[in-house]
């Protein structure tokens, strides 16, 4: 608790809008909300302030003379320091396409101008609450903020537990490593907000796999799945199904695009000594083999399995 500095200060809101009338209105209307309001009237100041202040929420006008809000949010999302700050779009042009575009670029909400004060307060407070929860979960419960999967730290701890349990009961234990193919190219071609969408949807796919399997974001575009009481062959079937599901996903951004992944698989009977480090190394080698085979496929570790353990 005590190391969460965010609990102890008033929420900070950064409003980026070219109209001084709007800034005055926000200051006046949110006066009693325990929200510190900071104002920027152009894109450059807004981005600079966002990096320095690290506000809890950004209210971003879409129509500004120098650069529009869609450009600005892409800069915010591409910068790791500002990537996780929730952005609420703020615009008087409230057509559906504009709103959808805003959400696709990573906005959490949309407020139309002229705004109802009560609604604005509710939406700002909801965005702040949400970002605090996400941050809290990421810090304390070891959940990855973007995908909602377990994070790397949890993966390391949990794999240790599962290896010990499998050893105790002479159970199988499989490990899948998977990595999205040519993901840097996806980011470069379609932008980071789209890359994030891919990670999120793939994360969702992994999260809805078999009950009892433990899906984690290992880092970047790499994921690890721990499969208790499962051998490598069974794990390969799981991976094949995931790959089919991933390939058949359609992407609004480019209907012709197919995202693929490579999978490396091993299990506890193929590694010596039977440690988490050996398991990770073996799965990593198998993943490398899948990449070398041309990606978009599943590779099982070619280490021969030892005879089935008996209790």
């Amino acid at each position: 608790m005590q190391n969460d500095r965010h609990e102890h200060h008033d929420a900070r809101l950064l409003a980026i809008d070219d109209s001084e009338l709007i800034h005055q209105l926000l200051r006046g209307r949110l006066r009693n909300e325990r929200i510190q309001i900071h104002a920027a009237t152009n894109a450059a100041d807004g981005l600079q302030l966002a990096r320095v202040l690290l506000p809890d929420v950004i209210l971003l006008d879409i129509d500004m003379p120098d650069r529009n809000g869609f450009d600005i949010i892409q800069d915010l999302k591409a910068d790791p320091t500002t990537h996780d700050i929730p952005v609420i779009f703020f615009s008087s042009d409230a057509n559906v396409d504009t709103k959808i575009r805003g959400f696709e670029l990573g906005a959490v909400d949309f407020v139309t101008k002229p705004f109802e004060v009560a609604e604005l307060k509710a939406r700002v407070n909801s965005a702040i609450r949400l970002s605090r929860l996400v941050r809290m979960l990421a810090q304390r419960a070891q959940v990855d903020g973007l995908t909602g999967l377990w994070n790397r730290a949890y993966f390391d701890w949990r794999l240790g537990e599962e290896v010990a349990i499998a050893e105790r009961h002479c159970n199988d234990l499989a490990l899948i490593f998977c990595d999205l193919d040519r993901f840097k190219g996806v980011n470069d071609t379609y932008g980071h907000p789209f890359g994030d969408q891919v990670l999120e949807r793939f994360g969702l796919l992994l999260a809805h796999g078999r009950k009892g399997d433990i899906a984690c974001r290992y880092g970047g575009e790499e994921f690890g799945i721990i499969l208790p009481e499962t051998n490598a062959q069974e794990a390969a079937n799981v991976a094949e199904r995931l790959l089919v599901d991933l390939r058949s996903m359609t992407w609004r951004r480019d209907p012709g695009l197919a995202i693929t992944a490579s999978f490396g698989i091993t299990d506890l009977r193929r590694v010596h000594p039977r440690t988490t480090a050996a398991l990770v190394e073996s799965a990593d080698r198998a993943l490398y083999a899948a990449k070398a085979r041309g990606r978009n496929c599943v590779a099982v570790s070619d280490d021969p399995p030892q005879a089935r353990l008996t209790a």
Partner: peptide
């Protein structure tokens, strides 16, 4: 444009 967005407020 600015008045459109602000005056109502």
């Amino acid at each position: 444009h600015q008045l459109k967005g602000a005056a109502g407020g």
